[in-house]
Nucleic acid binder design. Structure first.
Lengths: 244, 244
DNA sequence: GCTTGACAGATAATCGATTATTTTTGTATT
DNA sequence: AATACAAAAATAATCGATTATCTGTCAAGC
């Protein structure tokens, strides 16, 4: 059938969300579900485009409809789930067109946000960048061990968000965070190894150093190229798998 | 108390949503609520920053919690409602900083979308612009008659969305639509008359004509100025009312 | 007088059951 | 065989009641 393969999705545990943000520990079931589902979608555990059967999901996660809908509603804001009245939810599909839009918008918005951050960011912002860079570059990605991939993805996301965190524009940050989610899904679904002619670690370093040195043109151009190369790389992998 | 003043909000009627988009008529209560609440927030009927008491709202609209939460969840995606676990919903607050961000992002995103539309848009896109422009310029705004204001707002929104509708980037359109919502709320809450030195009708005409003539630099600059002036205008009104 | 903690009322979250809608299946008709 | 329709099954939406959490109040202790 068309249903998402959720066979490996266990019931909810009490861990809440994982990544670096402070967790007030008072999460509702709906919140936990949102985190759990977000990770399941971004990691590819739930297949892109597949229908989400509420009844099955309810049983899988051992929850009632209310928090399930609650959680799914949040993923709609994230662009990871689509919804139609009386027809339910489905995992947002992937496509070449979507990937290209995500890449194009990242080039536009992330670069704009970086420019603004360089204009407004303070010393703490600079420090946060250097820390995020260091942690990222110290983490090895080993395709054989999935937990290192997850770890790397989290730190990579953190790095990109930190870069632009000084821009003072909450809405813009929200948009960028959303685009990053969508982008990361492509990378994780296609389990990309960076192509031979790239040294991603160095690319990150150049961006970061340009940023803290306030060399606006340099840093922005490096970031734009970084995003663009990732897009090209992913596009090739998509083409290989025959996705249009 | 802190609760939104919903005294004038009646129970749900079966009208569905109003503006020019095709309505499949099969809307759920949650959908209708979302439209109803969106309009209530943008029009200022629900005060910015006020708490939304679920129980009162439930009684006001004569619905159960489930569709109420459903509707509110959608407004979160729209940036019109904020939510915190176990602490409920509140109408998104307004502030000078938020207005400035909205203006700034509109300048960035709408102009980008217009540029892309001019690159990709076809003759139908051009036609849609001219129609939207004509309908907008034919509609008078009379502060004495609220229905003309609503009408004008709907057509104005339609015009701006049509301008950028040729860009071929659904996500970008979504962002712009969201920003337009936020922007329109400021205008409607502050019931702006355009300042004397502006002829908004002419501004719209210039943008539209530049767009269909494919004079990229001209049209984009006119649009940017148009957005910027609106921002400045609104900022002054905000300052007058003592909002920071 | 000020803080702390227990209680009560208010509010939000969740559940299980019911209702509405869609989708599938089977059958009769052309 | 293809189409159209009707009944049945599957699925989504909603409801009313229950449970969990939060917030304000008041009294006891310092």
């Amino acid at each position: 059938m068309d249903s998402a393969d959720d066979s490996s999705l266990g019931p909810l545990t009490e861990d809440g969300q994982s990544a670096g943000f402070l967790d007030d520990g008072k999460n509702t079931i709906g919140s936990q579900l949102a985190s759990r589902l977000r990770e399941a979608i971004i990691s590819g555990e739930l297949e892109a485009g597949s229908k989400i059967n509420l009844d099955k999901a309810r049983k899988t996660f051992n929850v009632s409809l209310s928090p399930l809908r609650e959680g799914l509603a949040r993923l709609i804001s994230d662009g990871l789930v689509e919804f139609q009245d009386n027809r339910g939810y489905r995992v947002a599909p992937i496509s070449l067109a979507n990937l290209e839009e995500v890449t194009s918008l990242r080039e536009e918005l992330e670069v704009f946000a970086l420019r603004e951050s360089m204009r407004l960011g303070d010393v703490e912002w600079e420090g946060n960048i250097m820390r995020a860079l260091h942690r990222l570059n110290r983490t090895e990605r080993d395709a054989a061990r999935p937990e290192t991939l997850e770890q790397w993805e989290a730190l990579h996301r953190e790095f990109h968000l930190t870069l632009i965190s000084g821009c003072g524009k909450p809405l813009l940050l929200h948009f960028c965070s959303l685009l990053l989610n969508l982008n990361d899904r492509y990378r994780r679904v296609f389990l990309i190894r960076t192509s031979g002619d790239r040294n991603v670690g160095q690319e990150h370093s150049e961006i970061a150093q340009g940023a803290v040195a306030r060399d606006v043109d340099y840093a922005c151009e490096k970031l734009r190229q970084h995003i663009h190369r990732t897009g090209t790389n992913l596009r090739n992998h998509l083409a290989t798998k025959g996705i249009e």
